[in-house]
Amino acid sequence: MFKYFKLLGIFWKFSVLRELEYRANFLTNAFMSVFWLFWGIIGTTIFFAHSDTLGGWTYEQVLVVLGLYTMFLGIMEAFFRPNITEMIEQVRVGTFDFVLVKPVNAQFYASFHSLTMWRLADVVAGAGLILYALRAMGLTPTPMQWLAFALLLAVALILVYCIWLGMMTMSFWFVKIDNFAELFYAFYETGRFPISVYSGLLRAFLTFVIPIAFITTFPASALMALLDPMELLIGLGLAFLLLGFTNRLWRFAVRSYASASS
């Protein structure tokens, strides 16, 4: 276990060094984070010019959701996107073999060995927006609420990881498809707004099938005393199930990759 933490440190140091080779990235990423955040806020403001609530949520409450959306966008772009990009390339070129002959868990290596540090700017920007919105509402969450928030954040992290692991697994089979991530982002776009905005089937879909609701809406609810404890339980269950499923899928894929390639 300790070995893996140490490895994580070394992987990330390696990635940071690699990124320092391209210093211009820092400025553009920082600029884009801020620009994107303001763009999101302006977009939200437009809706509130015509109504006091959106899906029953006030302007500041929606900003908390937007903050979480921005945070997780940053997390995905910083931790997951570079790894999936690299893995697709490695499977295509055949250098994924080098990963498989290393004495380290291949799933761990493939999932975490790259990091795009600059995108963490989004995480900072998103967290800033959450804190700002909470202050604007004069809300101070209780310790219990913080705890529920932390749990749901963990659930969201696991769900996000599972989704990306699932997409990475697909790259064993569909070598040519490098834009799965774009497809997921198309769904993730819905996470800018509380789930109550969407109706009927779409809402069920975004809660249980591609659980965007658990990534942005429910953690936000936890902070503002809007959470139904059932949602927390369902979230934990879902995270558990999906983690088991995607891990199995990965192992199955590695096995079939190893017996199919030449």
């Binding site: 809706f47 959106l54 497809l183 198309a186 776009e189 905005v197 969407y198 109706s199 779409l202």
Partner: peptide, 15 residues
């Protein structure tokens, strides 16, 4: 992937 207009539509419909 070009779902953006559809998301916006869903939000406006709720309003």
């Amino acid at each position: 992937s070009a779902s953006f207009p559809l998301v916006m539509m869903a939000v406006w419909l709720s309003l």
